[in-house]
Structure formats: structure tokens, C-alpha cells
Design a protein around this nucleic acid. Sequence first.
DNA 1: GTCCAGGACC
DNA 2: GGTCCAGGAC
Length: 239
Amino acid sequence: MGGMAARQNDQAEIKQKVTCKRETFEDLMDVYQLLLEAYGPRHWWPAETPFEMMVGAILTQNTTWVNVEKAIRNMGKRLTSDYIAAAPLEELGELIRSSGYFRQKAQRLKNLTEWYAQYTYDIEKARARKGEALRAELLAIKGIGPETADSILLYALDKLFFVIDAYTRRILERLGYTLPQTYDELRMVIEQNILADLTVYQEFHALLVEHAKRHCTKEPRCCACPVEGICWYRQGKVT
DNA sequence: GTCCAGGACC
DNA sequence: GGTCCAGGAC
């Protein structure tokens, strides 16, 4: 009699267990280590100069990197602050057409360059400022949101801000973490649980991108995944 | 041809 | 939630 009720209880408990999530982000560095061992250091961001890095950050918004590469190649020697500052909007747009949203992005490149002018296009002058101040300035630029701002802060300005993108969310979801809704909440909880080191920040984001492309694709390819041992999606605990 | 991935702003 | 876009997958 009690046996039946107890069994139903067990099943209810099991059901609850499979739908719950990781409680904390304390083991994030384990994820980092596994990805680093699997893929090796990525040495991101792929750019010749800090300015090219910032340009790439805008061009890659909602766009695959191959299309950005075409745009960067197309700009060639014109990939300079002086050219962008002076070029007609339409001409600039044509150069970067392959990266999509080219009218918006042409204007955004001009906005970025206008901001950079106050540092006389000198990255060291910008780096001399506090990260928080730079972040506020970048976010005030029309066309630069949190992800683009943090990419620029991390990869061009050497400031400790963790970059959150769609790949980051997808991977962490699948691993089983409970993600805060907002960008900054997620960024800060990650920052509180990883080593405060520029290389770790830079590599971790790059490794997440690599992982999202090789294994944690939209349709996951879990075979031989370097984090399958700790992944809750792989273990059927989350969908 | 249609569909889709992918940030920021309105 | 709608809009901005090219290019690759199908």
C-alpha cells in the first residue's frame, strides 16, 4: 500500500532532479581548463592593430566572421581612422557591404572613430583611463551595445570585462547553469567565478566561440566533446 | 528560390 | 517585437 505511494514519490523526485540546474558557477574554471586542453590557446582577437580590432567588433555584430574578413580585406589600406573619418558614408558602406547591415555599420564605424579621435587615435591614451569610464563612453556610442563594448574593452583596451555572446549563453545553458536574464548580471557572475587575469578572460571567450563552432553548435555534436563529462545536456539533465 | 544565424536600436 | 543585411545551407 505504502509501496505504491513511495514509488510515485520517488518518480516525482527524479523528475524534479532532471529539471533543476547547477546552483553555482564555482566550477567555471574547470570548463576553462577542459576547453584550453582540447583546443589550445586561441590567441584572439584576430586583428593587426587595436583599431582594426575595434572595427572588426562592429562589423561582426550579428554576422559570421568570414563575411567580416571579406569586408576587412576589401578595406585594405583604407582600414584607418583617418579614412573612416573622412570617407563618404556611402563609399564606406560599399566597402563593408559583405558584413551585412552595411548602412548602419558604416555609420557605426564613423561613430566609433569620432570617439577615438578624442584620444588622438592613440590606443595608449585610451588604455590609460579606467575600464569603467571607457565602458560608459563606449556604451554611449550609438551602435555599440554591451557585447561590442566588452569585446573592445577586453581585446583592444586590455580591460577585464567578460564578453557575453549568444554562444556563451548557449554553452552555459547546456552545461546546466542557471543564467541570469540580463547581460550585466551574467557578465558579473562569470567575472566573480573566474581568475581575474587578462589572458584568462581573452582565452576563455575565444575558447567558448571555438567550442560553439566545433561541438556546441545549434544542433549539438556531442561526440568527442571535451566537456561531455560535466555537461548536463549530454547527461540528459537539461534539454 | 526560402530559411536562417547573429547585436543593437526603435 | 520589428527592423536592419549578406551569404551560406538547403
